[in-house]
Structure formats: C-alpha cells, structure tokens
Amino acid sequence: MSQPTFETAVRTQGVNMFFGEGESRVTALKQADFDARRGELIMLVGPSGCGKTTLLSVIAGTLTPQAGTVEVFGQRLDGLGQEDLTTFRRKNLGFVFQSFNLIPTLTSLENVTVPLLIQGVSQREAEERARIVFEKVGLKGREDSRPNSLSGGQQQRVAIARALVHEPPLLICDEPTSALDKDTGAQIMEMIRTLSRAPNRCVVVVTHDQRIFRFADRIAEMEDGRIRRVVDDPRQLDTTHL
C-alpha cells in the first residue's frame, strides 16, 4: 500500500459499499483503494456494473460508504454529515454528466452561473465570470440559447463551462462522451483536458469509451468493485472485456 505523497488529491482505502439488504443485497465496492494526484487526468475504466459510478459518487461526497476512508484534498469525507458534505461539494467539485443535466428552462449562460450563485456570488458577477468561461468553451454568441436548441457537443461544452466556472480543485466526469459521436467526443475530451489543466486540479473521468483513453495521464482499471490495476499507457490494458 503506497504512502500518501504531497501530491495526493484523492485517496480511498478499504471502501466497502453495498446497496439493499438481505437477498437483494448488491455489493458495488469491496475494499476499493484508489489514488489520484494533483494535476493529473485519471480515467476509471472497467466492465459495466463493476462499480465505477459508485466509486465516483463516493469521491464526490454524494454517497457515504459503509466502510473505509475517503480523503479528498486532505479532508476526510467519511464521517462527515450531510451539511458538511454539501459544503464540501460546493467548494471543491465540478460535475460533468453523461446526460449533460442542464436545466432546460434556463438559458445556457444562466446554467453556467448556477455553481457561482450557489456559492453566494452576486447575479452580476456570476454572469460576468460565466461569460468568460463561456467564451473559452467556444460558445460565444449562444449565451441566450436554451440547452435544447444546442447540439449534444455544444450542450456538453456548456456543462464543462458550468463544471469549471467556480474553479473547483476536483473535476468529476461520468461518461462525458458516451452520448456523443466519435469526433465530438474527442473534441470534448480535448477541451476537458486543456481547460481543466491546472497544477492543483485533479480530473477523474469514468468512461467506457476506448477512443478517448489516449487523453488520460493514468488509467485505473476496475473489476468487481475494486481497482485491479493502474496503468500509464492504455496499450497495457486488456481491452477485450471493456
């Protein structure tokens, strides 16, 4: 077991997570040990149902595991109450979802302001800051468009702007490209990689999509609720079962 280094961003040890009781009990994570470093983009891969989303939720502080320790940027999440977890997410997290999860009744720019408004930033300042990020994702001119009038790739770019607008140290992406075609997926991954690059930021990407493995600094392979191994080069992976 490796010792935590100065550059550790996320660290889970011996995390157990199961759902349901008795007969219908499903174990999603068993003794999951996972590390991610500051400044890296790490991918979580593995067959369907192996626990990727569950582990991501544990790291994000939206699920509390039954056992094990979870440490994110030096803060222990296991044992925190709902209120503290909420505060933790507000300050530290940016989310990118597979299904974008943009609020359809708000304009794109308004969607991007949400994390800032949650932090209590004034409407005006939030809009100013959102505009800057909006430009960075290449959507200048579409501020007032509703998400539904944008293409999938454009919607995911709005979502990236929303995930980064408050400059969170941890960016969490669950299958960010699987609702997109090949080229768009690659563009989105490129964008996540370049925009989220920061010495202190850690990006965790869950994916099935082998076409984007090349954007990862490291790849953690999961199997049956635990991390099987971590590799630096996608070619080291046995991808037949993914």
Binding site: T86, R90, K91, L93, F95, I103, P104, I118
Partner: peptide, 18 residues
C-alpha cells in the same frame, strides 16, 4: 418535472435551505 434538476443543484452543493 424539475426534480432531476433540483437533484443536480443539490449535488453541486446547494443546501436544502436554498
């Protein structure tokens, strides 16, 4: 209809009071 979006807002760190 908005439940999903309120859940997202909640995940992003909005407290129940908000």
């Amino acid at each position: 209809e908005n439940l999903k979006y309120f859940a997202a807002i909640k995940a992003m760190g909005a407290g129940m009071a908000t």
